[in-house]
Design a protein around this nucleic acid. Sequence first.
RNA 1: GGCGCUAUCGUCUAGGGGUUAGGACGUGAGAUUCUCAAUCUUAAAACCCGGGUUCGAUUCCCGGUAGCGCUACCA
Length: 506
Amino acid sequence: MADHGKVRVRFAPSPTGQLHIGNVRTALYNWLFARKTGGTFILRIEDTDVERSEGRYETQLLADLKWLGLDWDEGPDVGGPYPPYRQSDKMDVYRAYAAKLIQEQKAYYCFCTAEELERERQQALTEQRQPIYSGKCRKLDAGEVERRRAAGEPAAIRLKIPEHPIRFHDIVRGPVEFSNEVVSDPIIVRSSGMPIYNYVVVIDDADMKITHVIRGDDHISNTPKQVAVYEALGLPVPEFAHLSTILGPDRERLSKRHGATSISHFREMGVLPEALMNYLALLGWAPTGGDREIFPTAELIKEFSLERVTPSPAIFDNEKLNWLNRQYIKSSAPPVIHEMGTGFLRQAGLLPASPNGHVSGWANKLIDLLAPYVDRLEQLPERAGIIFKHDPAEFLQSAENAEIFANDDRKAISVLWEFQKRCPDSELAPERFKTIMNEIKTDLSVKGKDLFHPIRIALIGSHSGPDFDRLIPLIEEGSHLQLPVQVKSVHERIREFLTAIEQRRG
RNA sequence: GGCGCUAUCGUCUAGGGGUUAGGACGUGAGAUUCUCAAUCUUAAAACCCGGGUUCGAUUCCCGGUAGCGCUACCA
């Protein structure tokens, strides 16, 4: 086992697309482990697949990781003692190691073409044999190899897999063993000269003195090949920790068709980074005792341990993420929520691009009022509809609402008329509102629902909603502000609603 | 097909040879409120199956089943 004393771990994504939530969790566990142990967290870009790698993805990847709250001690942007941190900058190193392996006869040139190999593979499959490489070119004599090379025949480089079972240790799963009979001699350098992932990853990890390889369990079957590379090169084999897959509700690997899967998508939905981090940490890991759910970052670092990571796959549960996000929305410092919330309202065209002091003060109150009602901040603009959208005709479309005004002795309508009569067309102060309500209560002898529901429906279109003591001042203050969507005053709302009722009766 | 990994409430999980199998999300009920949300209380809800070991297995071992992964000159 590799033991350099000090922990060194890495997250090594390929810049081939949006950062997937499963990879983010891998990054997080690496980071938590490093921070917990006082080790080093390294970011490395794996871009040997030139076809699919793009610079813009790399830029976004770094931004996404930072947004989540992760930082790295070594990486392509910050440097470090074992550069380069981008594989594409390191080709000559890989070639040098490959040459060494050839020379030591631990690897050999393979002249088989892709078509030949595919044919052999299919053949093996139909004969129900193991579809592993026959080892044909392993037996080629040196002279022939030399001749064909000289003739310019393209050749890949294959590693010789040893004649014994390959074992490695996995912190999450314990000892793992693969029979050498199921492991082909893997290609380590393509005939184009471009090295293969399973090979470069080992060289990079070894060069960077990685002590613990923490990654997704889709790499488990690759690990024996990699261990063979370590052994051929005489390099110390690190500890492994293979993390289980994150599944969608249908128990299939979480993918785009399950909805949001990239970290930026969650950010756009108004999920707080702390909440996402907390949720991801809990997906596949639990603290001792397992009876606590809320873990701010510092606590997470304190409690985290790789030994407690669960080996079984986990289904991503949006409901629980929502719940956690709500907890973090409630416990976050108000300015944080104000700023984020304002962003969403502005984006929806409900606030001006650069609000003045009055407007932003009012917007903050609006956000305070609505935030407890949302799972994700992106829901804010829709919730703000109770303030910005006032359409009496539409309110009366609802059967539930219509019924309240259609029935009985027109009590609900009388309540509104009485309210209208007493409501000043200038600003309605909260104390004044209370007085009015009390007056109507005695004069018409209505109380409770019969009193409150008609008024709330007239104001916001639903008999349920926020407390009047908070709602009324907000509406009134908003109605005096210069906003992209003008807020109607209480007085206007009641008047227009009464008009709509009259019209409806014809 | 082969190989590998996995298996506790619907979901995330704690636990572990003898437990009323614990917590959380979600769900139901109740309290509170004019109402909704929030909050509080409360209820229902789980050890995949079959063998073995054992006085006793959900726990340890073996097998089965199921799910997932790998089986590339992708990463």
